[in-house]
């Protein structure tokens, strides 16, 4: 069984994002970029399925500008067999990403597609659902447990009410939540090995994806700031402050 993993490069989750003074976007120059944390979890899950002998091949895919090659090498160093780099000039919106991933799905015929539940830059939380819909296949979003047996997968999902379990026929799209696993660390020799693993580049235009992005983004603004309040010296002072506000 082949697994396709969506592997997006985003601003590292530790970076405190700044909005550009002219509101045209956020500052990304010189900012650390990393794999989307949910995509690292997706890749880890795929590798574990390969370790168990359930999967035979793990392919990481990204739609990103040309300078994203080291990012894909990172996925190969973590253990993916192959990488596909769809080279696009700028960022693509989720519907376009889903349409592009569908083209890769048609080409690669994976039994399982693992994506993150959300990319922590746009926080859209859409691509997996859109891909499953366009593909006409099942989706199980926000997975915290995944079991594959034969042509079915059983997925536990983190939903607002608790934990929901679904059974889906394969092929299917599964999106990962934080508690699915803890991604492994990359070892130095694997970085060397990754250099010789296959990395295919496809110009975005070659995929003939239906045209463009749909939402126009305008001004960016910093969020309203909460001002620092007061430090109280003890419980009594806290309680009287809360009483004064009618909160207790």
């Amino acid at each position: 069984m082949k697994i396709l993993v969506g592997y997006k490069r985003v601003v590292d989750y530790n970076v405190r994002i700044q909005v550009k003074p002219d509101g045209s976007g956020v500052v990304t120059d010189g900012v650390k970029l990393s794999p989307n944390p949910f995509d690292d979890i997706a890749l880890e899950e795929a590798l574990r399925l390969r370790d168990k002998g359930i999967a035979t091949e793990v392919v990481v895919a990204t739609i990103a500008p040309a300078d994203a090659q080291p990012h894909l090498r990172n996925g190969l160093a973590m253990g993916a067999n192959r990488a596909i780099h769809v080279v696009a000039d700028g960022p693509v919106q989720p519907l376009t990403a889903a349409r592009a991933l569908l083209k890769l799905v048609e080409k690669e015929q994976p039994q399982l597609v693992l994506l993150g539940k959300q990319a922590i830059d746009d926080d859209a939380n859409q691509t997996g659902q859109m891909l499953a819909t366009l593909w006409g296949r099942p989706q199980a979003t926000f997975a915290s447990k995944l079991e594959v047996a034969g042509d079915k997968a059983t997925v536990t999902r983190e939903v607002d009410a608790g934990l929901e379990t679904l059974e889906v026929d394969l092929p299917a799209v599964v999106t990962t939540d934080l508690r699915l696993n803890e991604p492994r660390f990359i070892k130095l020799p694997d970085i060397m090995k990754a250099k010789s693993k296959p990395l295919e580049t496809i110009p975005f235009a070659d995929l003939a994806v239906e045209s463009g992005d749909h939402l126009t983004t305008g001004r960016h603004a910093p969020p309203p700031k909460r001002s620092k309040g007061v430090m109280v010296k003890d419980v009594a002072e806290l309680v009287s402050a809360l009483r004064a506000k009618g909160l207790v």
């Binding site: 989750y13 994002i17 746009d122 926080d123 939402l215 983004t217 969020p223």
Partner: peptide, 11 residues
């Protein structure tokens, strides 16, 4: 976007 660190206008 970005965990609420920026608010963007979308049309």
């Amino acid at each position: 976007i970005y965990a609420g660190n920026a608010i963007v206008d979308v049309t």
